[in-house]
Design a protein around this nucleic acid. Structure first.
Length: 983
RNA sequence: GCCCGGGUGGUGGAAUAGGUAGACACGCAGGACUUAAAAUCCUGUGGCCAGCAACGGCCGUGCGGGUUCGAUUCCCGCUCCGGGCACCA
């Protein structure tokens, strides 16, 4: 330890000059991060500085980043924002003596790699591996403290073996609503064999009812179908966006206005037999357990809205002249006397049965129309109501009047029961529908006592409602629920908005299902010992005909010798990411996804950092899987993530230039300066904006950004199709590189803020910033930009400030010849004060994830130490440790310059001594009626009376209170004094 | 439409428990060093008013109210921006 020199035995009393031993090395120390970054990267790697053991007597702490999808565009400056924050936190926790698990990996299955393969023929495994290498290099450049021995890749068979394993567990279990836990399917079979469905409380797709004898009499195929109704991973018909032209299924966001975004081909809703996960079984627990999580309130709200729990009644309406019944769910059973018609989802099973011959033509026409409507369209067009009458009547169970049955796209097949009783007087959509189609409207709630109350609010007095008349709505709801159960018309029910997760994808680049089908089509799990089921090699990644996965092409793989067939769909993106944090705990285990011991030691993620865009997708699915694994006893905690921090998106600047839509008469294209567009448009000329590479733009992101002659040359080199285009600027026109005007031409660009993306040509690579300023400067600058959760566009305007700070900090260690120069003298009280203020500030700010203020506290400390000309080893050594989480390279270099051994990242966080922070004098602001009029220095331990007296005696205060009455004086010790005057 | 954020100097932002609004930076202006530039250092910098100057005054955290001795902070209403959800029965 380098502290011996100032230990009491060595410190000389008396003259400072004598005890100051100047320690001057002859090395010239200039701050050049590029000269030591590589050295320390190697050192950390060789000494396994960041390797974490599962055996430790230190307390554990688990800091996790949402792992990235390795895209072809590489990491951009937005990605590291969260990684830097989590790295700072992880390093801080290590300095505090925690055994910190801080791993990184790749969410490596996904559509872009497959799309790329279709276009270029490059195997997704190859392009993915290359992208991963690039990401790794970029991350290494930033000095993260990941334990790379624990890296996971979801596309690695040794990883997805366990994804498949978990899927088979889901397949092999059902949810017991009474015991509130998952139980093996064998237990369900035993229950059926013994007592049929009697006494069963299981989560299911459809309520079934049969006796033990009936169960015994069923064939294997029938039994398998029944069990599917209960499995947590099950197969059923679900609707997909099918695009015939592209021969593939599209995601909701790939469909715009009913046509494919790519190519604009028609898209139709088509039913398909697909795997789903019964996440709804866990809805209630996922909602309840949100309470104990340290997520932002907004995040919790988003999740609970997504789960969307509502209490109400399940009700059956009978049909005039039919045995069929329509099952509905309503949260407003009180309004049933106002139910004047019913609406089914167009896809509802009863539609064919309930359509009368007279109405068939109209209904068919409507169904054809609905098919072309994406789910998104159906949900977003609020103004226009559409529907068709089936010709049949249902009976309102309370009024006993016949009410017409309609279909309408505003009723969704997958929500509730896919059917509603319509109460036009109490629901806006029903009202619009009834008005349009001339259906009866009966007022049932009198809201005259509730001014400002809308149709939706559950308040008012019941009218026209038989036995409910005169009751307040809440009481009426309760009485009606009792009445419904008494009359056997239905029962109380809790409904969830959340739907089961569709788990099939007709794609190549995903986990294959470890499922085989016998000749009857019954799904069987593969033996666990045979996992992983690896993806077969393929040459052609195009979807196979008929909406079947590309895997169907691999006949050898699909067809088994015994005549059975493999499932050819693959799993979705969220499969691998739903449990990856568990694999990091024990990544090389071949016997289990992680050992019991590892799971018991690391338990859960203490801090999870990632973007809000995963609020409902990834976070919901992984919470669901975790709870399932908890039920099975595989994990020790019921929630995976203790605390969640959402980093804001770093947006990019998109620079566009205006291209005239119509070519000139000579066939050339014409671009026009943004300043000229308005006048041109006034002439009726139309333009499209096309994005250009931001690198070509001078002053990009600033008002008046433009392409100069040079920029235009780069642009035409990049896009040769515009080589002969005319570029018109306010100064004159440029064509073929020649400028015919006077002055300097500026083709002013149009700038907007948006996502950083390859297609907008605005991706900023952190490598470029690092090579210019160094990794530490980049890290601290990203933190300095503002609060971590805030979204902001990337700009480097302030980066010089951080760079300057690092050089100044470095400068504390050197004399003006640039030589290392340290003093072994005992620091002064002022110097200690600066140090301890910093220790306190940094620790507090890190704990509250306020990294931007940390940076400014470092700046303040450095400025003050510079003013004090402090080069005392005892101060600087501790400052280096404080800085280490933020600037790992610079602090490691300085640590070794200090002559310390080992890594600064294995040092201990300095201890705070509050004594140095005590102030003897406090500067008090003195205000009159809340307005500060002057300040005065007063002893910190002065009594309130003394403070008051001192304040009143001040000359400026005397002037203010002269001739007025002092009503009272408020003294807040250590803070301020306020004098209240009147007159 | 509903829910959740947010609006502070020319710019990014700070103010942690209702107590000196604008910390720390960027930018800008002036100065020192230099043959010069870069780098570095120093000074000033919310707006308006007054003044030779010192000392000042008024306004000011999206807008309008309120609570309070005192409000960027709490409450009510509005507005704009961002995000999420959405014929959710």
């Amino acid at each position: 330890m380098g502290t011996i020199l100032h230990s009491p035995t060595f410190s000389l009393q008396g003259k400072q000059a004598f005890c100051t031993i100047l320690y001057t090395a002859l090395v010239i120390m200039e701050y050049k991060p590029s000269e030591f970054e590589a050295k320390w990267k190697r050192y950390w790697e060789e000494n396994q500085v960041y390797q974490v053991s599962n055996q430790s007597d230190r307390p554990k702490f688990y800091v996790l980043d949402m792992f990235p999808y390795p895209s072809g565009a590489g990491l951009h400056v937005g990605h590291p924002l969260g990684y830097i924050a989590s790295d700072i936190f992880a390093r801080y926790k290590r300095l505090q003596g925690f055994n910190v698990l801080h791993p990184m990996g790749y969410d490596a299955f996904g559509l872009p790699a497959e799309q790329y393969a279709i276009q270029t023929g490059v195997h997704p495994a190859k392009s993915t591996a290359e992208n991963i290498d690039r990401y790794r290099g970029q991350m290494d450049n930033l000095g993260f403290s990941f334990d790379w021995n624990r890296e996971v890749r979801t596309c690695d068979p040794q990883y997805y073996r366990w994804t498949q394993w978990i899927f088979l567990q889901l397949f092999g279990h059902y949810y017991d609503n009474q015991a509130n836990t998952a139980r093996p399917i064998s237990a369900l079979e035993a229950h059926f064999a013994k007592q049929g469905t009697t006494g069963l409380a299981a989560a299911c797709s459809e309520d079934l009812s049969f006796s033990a004898a009936e169960w015994q009499a069923k064939t294997a195929k029938e039994r398998s179908d029944i069990l599917m109704n209960y499995r947590l991973a099950y197969r059923k018909e679900t609707y997909v966006n099918w695009c015939e032209e592209l021969g593939t299924v599209l995601a909701n966001d790939e469909v715009k206005d009913g046509v494919s975004e790519r190519g604009g081909y028609p898209v139709e809703r088509r039913p398909m037999l697909q795997w789903s996960l019964r996440i709804t079984a866990y809805a209630d627990r996922m909602l309840r357990d949100l309470d104990e999580l340290e997520f932002s309130e907004a995040m919790k709200k988003m999740q609970s809205n997504w789960i969307g729990r509502s209490e109400g009644a399940q009700l059956f309406f009978s049909i005039a002249g039919s045995d069929a019944q329509i099952e509905i769910f309503t949260t407003r059973p009180d309004t049933i006397f106002g139910a004047t018609y019913m609406v089914l989802a167009p896809e509802h099973d009863l539609v064919p049965l309930l359509t009368t011959p007279e109405q068939k033509a109209a209904v068919d026409a409507y169904l054809t129309y609905v098919k072309t409507r994406s789910e998104r369209d159906r949900m977003s067009d609020v103004k226009e109501v559409t529907g068709a009458f089936l010709g049949t009547y249902a009976i309102n169970p309370f009024t006993e009047s016949p009410i017409p049955v309609w279909i309408g796209e505003y009723v969704l097949k997958d929500y509730g029961t896919g059917a509603i009783m319509a109460v036009p007087s109490d629901d806006d959509r029903d009202f619009a529908f009834a008005t349009k189609f001339g259906l009866e409207i009966i007022d049932v709630v009198d809201k005259t006592n509730y001014p400002g109350s809308t149709r939706h609010d559950k308040e008012g007095l019941m009218i026209n409602s038989g036995f409910l008349d005169g009751m307040e709505v809440p009481a009426a709801i309760e009485l009606m629920l009792q009445e419904i159960e008494k009359r056997g018309l239905g029962k109380r029910k809790v409904n969830f908005k959340i739907r089961d997760a569709i788990y099939s994808r007709q794609r190549y680049w995903g986990e294959p299902f470890p499922i085989i089908y016998d000749p009857e089509g019954v799904a069987h799990p593969m033996p666990l010992a045979e996992l992983p089921l690896e993806l077969p090699e393929l040459e052609n990644f195009q979807p196979a005909s008929g909406g079947v996965s590309p895997l169907a092409r691999a006949a050898d793989w699909v067809e088994l010798p015994n005549g059975w067939r493999r499932e050819t769909d693959t799993m979705p993106g969220f499969a691998g990411s739903s449990w990856y944090f568990l694999r990091y705990m024990d990544p090389h285990n071949t016997e289990a996804f992680a050992s019991k011991a590892a799971l018991e030691y690391w338990r859960e993620v203490d801090l999870y950092v990632g973007g809000t865009e995963h609020a409902v997708g990834h976070l919901m699915y992984s919470r669901f899987w975790h709870k399932f694994l908890f039920d099975l006893g595989y994990v020790p905690t019921k929630e995976p993530y203790r605390k969640l921090i959402n980093q804001g998106m770093i947006q990019g600047v998109i620079e566009n230039i205006y291209l005239q839509k119509e070519r000139l008469t000579d066939g050339r294209n014409r671009f026009v300066c943004a300043t000229l567009v308005a006048t041109e448009e006034a002439k009726g000329i139309e333009f499209t904006k096309i994005p250009v590479f931001v690198d070509y733009v001078t002053d990009y992101g600033l008002p008046g950004s433009y392409l100069g002659l040079d920029g235009i040359a780069k642009f035409t080199a990049w896009r040769p199709e515009y080589a002969d285009a005319v570029f018109e600027t306010a100064q004159g026109a440029i064509s073929a590189g020649k400028f015919n005007g006077t002055g300097t031409p500026r083709l002013v660009t149009q700038s907007e803020v948006g996502k950083m993306s390859k297609s907008k040509y605005n991706v900023i690579n952190p490598d470029d910033v690092v090579s210019q300023y160094g990794a530490d400067c980049f890290r601290m600058y990203e933190m300095f930009l503002g609060p971590i959760e805030q979204a902001k566009p990337w700009d480097t305007k302030g980066i010089d400030g951080v760079n300057k700070f690092l050089r100044r900090f470095w400068g504390l260690f050197t004399n003006n010849q640039g030589e290392l120069s340290l003093s072994e003298a005992t620091p002064t009280r002022d110097e200690f004060k600066v140090l301890h203020q910093t220790i306190k500030g940094i620790a507090e700010d890190i704990e509250r994830f306020s990294f931007n203020t940390c940076v400014s506290k470092f700046m303040i400390a450095t400025n003050e130490l510079q003013k004090l000309s402090c080069n005392k080893r005892d101060i600087l050594r501790e400052m280096v440790i404080l800085l280490a989480p933020f600037a790992p390279f610079t602090s490691e270099e300085l640590w070794h310059q200090l002559g310390e051994s080992g890594s600064v990242h294995q040092a201990r966080f300095p201890e705070l001594n509050e004594d140095y922070l005590k102030e003897s004098i406090i500067q008090y602001p003195i205000s009159i009626n809340g307005k500060v009029r002057t300040t005065v220095d007063l002893p910190a331990d002065a009594s309130n009376d003394a403070l008051q007296a001192a304040a009143l005696a001040l000359e400026p205060i005397q002037r203010w209170i002269d001739g007025k009455e002092v009503v009272k004086v408020i003294v807040v010790p250590q803070r301020m004094i306020n004098i209240v005057v009147k007159g």
